[in-house]
Every structure is written in C-alpha cells, then in structure tokens.
Design a protein around this nucleic acid. Structure first.
Length: 265
DNA sequence: CTGCAGGCCCTTA
DNA sequence: TAAGGGCCTGCA
C-alpha cells in the first residue's frame, strides 16, 4: 500500500468525469477499482488529499503516476483560467477541483469513443463490460476485435455502431489505421487522419485526441458543451485563449454542467 | 407512448 | 457549407 499527498485529486470526481468507464466504487465502500493497462488498482481516499494506492512501488511509478497525470501542476492551469475572470469557469473549476486528465490507452480510447456516440453512460459501461468480459483485465486487441462479425457486436448492444467497431478493428489490424504513426502526429494531423475512418466524426476524433493521444488542446464539443456555449456564452466561446489547456477546461465545464444540480462528492 | 443520450453518415440545395 | 432525416438501444 502506497500513500501519497496529492493536490487537485479526487478519485470520485475522476470516476464521474465521463472520460473513463472502467473506474468504479466497490459497493459504496469508498474503495475504488481502476482497470487500465491490464492491471487492477484499488484506491482509497478520505476527505482530504491523502490517497492510498494498493499496488507496488514499481507499478505506481511506472503506470499510475502517468495514468493519473500526477506530474502536471493543475494549480498552474487553474490560475491561468482564473485570470480570465469568467464567472462560469471559476465555478466550474471550484466544483471540479480534483479532476485529472487521465492518460489512457490509445486503442482502448478509439473503441470507447466510438461506443459513446449518441449513447448514455450506464449503457456505455455495460457494453464495455461485455466487450472486455472474456479478456479479464485486458482490453481486447485489434486482431481479436477484427475476428468477430458485425452480428456479434449487435448482440453486445452496440446497435448501429457495430459496423464502426468492426471496421476500425480491421483497419488497425491490417495497419490501414497505423497507431504508431497516429501517436507521432500533431493534433491537427491526428484529427484529419482519424476522421477518415467510419464512425469517427469531429467529436469522436477530439475525444480520441484528448483521452488517447493526450493532446490537451483538443476540445470535444458534445451536446453538453454545446449547451453551455449556447446558454452561457451566447453561442460565442473562443477557446484560443486556453491553447494547450483547452481540453482540460472542457473537462471542468463538462463535469460541472452535468453534475452541478446533483449531490456528488 | 414519445424523447433523448457525450454523433455520424448521407442526401439536398 | 448548412440543414435535416435515419439510425440501435434502453430508460424516464
């Protein structure tokens, strides 16, 4: 067990931030289970910044420090946003004080982001559970997912997205979609490249860029973000001020808008 | 019963 | 370039 004092960190907020679907609280025990990179991590956190990680020192430094983006100074980013003196953003940052931009696996994020389109979180989670069930802690690789039929994915509840999943898995399996090349691209190149593939439009491409490629300038505009921009900013919201932090700003906005009327830790 | 959930694709004009 | 209909499924 490793304990760390980590500012700007709330496992509960991260779990409810919508960027990941394999972090869950175990039976309201305040113990959280994280599945990523073929590992299962249990985390505990009281009402403070002391976080307990149930893992080896090696896994902590080689996997989880990176996964939870612990090297980034979120206070610095918050201060940049505070300087704008934007009342909505100030509230959003206060509300989502412990959010983190997780550094998740690219392939997993490609599939996950496609699944999320026109979908709701409980259903997204259950589909991902069924998709991963035969492989335990590992997310199924492209060659595995390319070996199924469209009908198989429809049975998992993917609906019209079944074809997208199969096509993208085949594209990665035959190297038409080259993940190594994708990882070396700039943000703009990556978006253009990703949008060539079926089922990947502007929003999904930006989710992949932000969550899977860690391009923090990506700013996915889903219905929630569009609603904020329309209702709070008169349909005019210039993200250029934020530059490489736009994606992190998006997380604060999204989390606040979705949860501000709920009672959440 | 409708409407909608972290959109995308295709067709028109 | 912009607008609009259809699409899987599950739940309020």
């Amino acid at each position: 067990m490793i304990s760390k004092i980590i500012p700007d960190f709330s496992i509960s907020q991260i779990a409810h931030s919508g960027q990941c679907f394999r972090i869950n609280e175990i039976n309201q025990s305040k113990v959280w289970q994280v599945i990523a990179f073929g590992k299962l991590l249990k985390i505990q956190q009281q009402e403070n910044n002391i976080v307990y990680f149930d893992c080896s020192a090696e896994d902590f430094s080689e996997i989880w420090v990176d996964y939870f983006d612990l090297k980034r100074d979120y206070n610095k980013i918050k201060n940049i946003i505070f300087k704008l003196n934007d009342p909505y953003l100030i509230e959003a940052i206060k509300y989502g004080h412990g959010l983190r931009m997780l550094r998740q696996d690219l392939w997993e994020m490609i599939i996950t982001s496609i699944i999320t389109q026109q979908n709701n979180i409980p259903r997204i989670k259950s589909i991902i559970e069924r998709l991963c069930a035969p492989y335990g802690l590992n997310f199924p690789s492209a060659d595995i997912l390319a070996s199924f039929t469209e009908e198989h994915y429809k049975q998992l509840g993917l609906g019209y997205r079944a074809k997208y999943i199969l096509d993208v898995a085949r594209a990665v399996d035959n190297n038409q979609l080259n993940l190594n090349k994708l990882e070396k691209m700039t943000y703009k190149e990556a978006i253009k490249y990703l949008k060539q593939f079926p089922g990947i439009g502007d929003k999904v491409a930006n989710c992949i860029a932000l969550f899977g490629l860690h391009k923090t300038e990506a700013f996915p505009e889903d219905v929630w973000i569009k609603r904020i921009i329309k209702e709070q900013y008169g349909s005019k919201f210039d993200i250029s001020y934020f530059q490489e932090y736009a994606g992190i700003v998006q997380q604060y906005m999204f989390f606040y808008e979705r949860n501000k009327n709920k009672r959440l830790a």
